[in-house]
Design a protein around this nucleic acid. Structure first.
Lengths: 142, 142
DNA sequence: ATATAATTGTTTGAAAACTAACTATTATAA
DNA sequence: TTATAATAGTTAGTTTTCAAACAATTATAT
């Protein structure tokens, strides 16, 4: 059981997340916020539905995380164009600064985790993880 | 960002977990319970501290999950021997049945996720993930 | 032997996560 | 055109999660 795929994925994901939260404790970001910042850094102006899907959380969960972030002035939600159903989410100046800090911490931890991997091994690992991800996405028989 | 290690670990972990919950919906198990059952299946009689560490959750979190499981008669907590500080956790008969069901669902999903991996690739993937896990555990510089 | 430390689990209060039910908007079909 | 579907986000209620503070027990040190 300590060597099953699901266990190793869980352990590594949670260890990664824990390390991140340690590394950005000074920012006062709460549990759910860093991943949103990280996503918005590359997708500023995304719609909530898209953010929720990319971060693998439910829209209802995102609603509450974004409310917290809006109160801290990290993001703004705007209606836009003739679409009065979707809300477009933008980083504020403060949000962008924190997003940068989060990213650099993500990089630092990632480098630490992979420091003994060769370039070839890194590429292979990446390929493996993407193949697993793909297998979950086409879920005919799942 | 869609190909960083942390993102791929997160995505795969959450996709795995989501697939599991789909597969065992009929059991009425809540979010936090399957992993505890899965652990106890191999470690019946474990102490709470040990369970929390293995499942990568805080003792306080475990307290609340176990209370729910105790109410459903899936586990019992017992003091034992001359140690009046620790609580030993045992699966009930019902708990054991559900644990079995959870395990077989875990296996099914795992096989699905890895169905296009050769034996050699599986071994390599396992090795990679264990090395990453180890790198988090020795956190001199982290 | 007594005081101090460390260990184990719980409580409290907050954020995050889910599902199900809801409102409002937009698209499709009859 | 009007009725029905689907879409986007929110609310309500429960569980999960964490951190910090707590009680009880056990170990260590003086």
């Amino acid at each position: 059981m300590n060597e099953t795929l699901h266990y190793l994925l869980m352990v590594n994901h949670l260890a990664f997340q824990k390390a991140l939260l340690m590394g950005i404790r000074d920012t006062n970001l709460t549990l759910g916020q860093p991943k949103i910042l990280d996503y918005l850094r590359d997708h500023d102006g995304a719609v909530q539905k898209e953010i929720a899907a990319a971060c693998y959380i439910e829209p209802a969960t995102l609603t509450s995380i974004l409310s917290g972030m809006e109160n801290k002035n990290l993001i703004v939600r705007r209606m836009q164009g003739n679409n009065r159903r979707s809300l477009y989410v933008y980083l504020t100046k403060q949000g962008k600064e924190l997003a940068k800090q989060v990213e650099s911490e993500f990089c630092r931890i990632e480098e630490h985790a992979l420091r003994e991997f060769s370039d070839e091994e890194r590429a292979l690992l990446n390929d493996f993880l993407i193949r697993i991800k793909d297998s979950f996405e086409k879920k005919e028989d799942l």
